[in-house]
């Protein structure tokens, strides 16, 4: 029976690395889905341009054309006085049923343009864009007022920036910790194989020949850890999504959650393998105490 060489160490290294990579993947997943949710909420950001009752059709068309040419807006929807009145009526029907009979009210409710921002505008830039648009529209003919929920958007932009920065910092911290843990784990593994290294040196193995199995082992360890972490994160993701779609469906968040793209999965596995190989390379270079250290001391 073949003796199990450093089985416990290898297993513990694999577990530690899987945990580290799991934390990194979870952070990426969190960041990505948070961004999805922000984009979803960002889609609701719109500007209402209230029109004066005297505005002509030609002026309205000109206004729409002007908005389109700015390149900052997406969908523009015309809301007539009648539609606005009907919407208002239906919203308040249960609270004030007689309101719908008040014909004078129709005269007070203005027609408007609902202007959505272009989809490419980042959440943190939405406030600035809306301010710019409002400034441009302020002196246009036929506009009575402009409203775009300034307070809400300002807070929303601040939250987006704060959360994005926090996630970036978290990923950096976890990545640094993972590198440290991985480097120590691989170093311990290499230390246990010093005898093997000295035997290989003794029989005339070149430096490249000695390093090769360690690099291979590091790459396999890194790749396997990322793959395992990916599987665990995927299972956790599916469970969370199921929860949001079923028991927490009132939050309406489930459909916006996405897993990391296949290309990103592949890149992460390759990255893990590369990182493992690099860690091994650095460790083997340091522990070699044979002719390489001799040539170093002579240099």
């Amino acid at each position: 029976m073949k003796p199990k060489k450093n089985f416990i160490l290898r297993l513990s290294t694999l577990v530690v690395l899987t945990a580290c990579f799991g934390a990194i993947i979870a952070s990426l997943l969190l960041a990505q889905n948070f961004k999805n949710l922000l984009t979803m909420w960002g889609d609701d950001v719109q500007m209402t341009v209230y029109l004066s009752s005297e505005i002509k059709e030609s002026d309205l068309a000109e206004l729409e054309e002007f908005l389109k040419q700015t390149g900052q807006v997406g969908l523009i929807t015309r809301i007539s006085k009648e539609k606005a009145f009907n919407d208002f009526k239906s919203q308040l029907a249960s609270y004030a049923p007689d309101l719908g009979q008040d014909e004078e009210l129709l005269k007070l409710i203005p027609a408007s343009l609902q202007v959505r921002l272009a989809s490419g505008i980042a959440p943190q830039d939405q406030m600035r864009t809306l301010n710019e648009l409002a400034a441009k529209l302020k002196n246009k003919e036929g506009i009575e007022d402009i409203s775009y929920g300034q307070d809400w958007i300002e807070k929303y932009g601040a939250i987006v920036t704060a959360v994005e920065r926090s996630i970036e910092a978290l990923v950096c911290i976890i990545l640094a910790a993972a590198l440290l843990v991985m480097s120590n784990a691989i170093r311990a593994s290499v230390q246990l194989r010093r005898d093997e290294i000295s035997v290989l040196e003794m029989i005339g193995a070149t430096y490249a020949y000695i390093r090769k199995p360690f690099l291979k082992e590091g790459a396999v360890l890194g790749g396997a850890s990322v793959s395992m972490a990916m599987v665990f994160c995927y299972l956790a993701f599916v469970a969370t999504k199921n929860l949001l779609v079923t028991k927490l469906s009132f939050l309406q968040l489930g459909h916006y959650l996405t897993f990391i793209s296949p290309l990103m999965v592949l890149l992460l596995i390759l990255g893990g393998a590369g990182l493992g190989a690099l860690g091994s390379y650095l460790c083997v270079r340091k522990i070699n105490d044979g002719w390489s250290s001799r040539s170093k001391s002579e240099a």
Binding site: E201, M202, I203, G204, A205, Y207, W291, R294, S295
Partner: peptide, 15 residues
């Protein structure tokens, strides 16, 4: 001897 020649030397020695 330089470090590249050392493995070649060691292949001529048994330990």
């Amino acid at each position: 001897i330089n470090h590249r020649e050392i493995p070649i030397l060691r292949r001529k020695i048994g330990v």
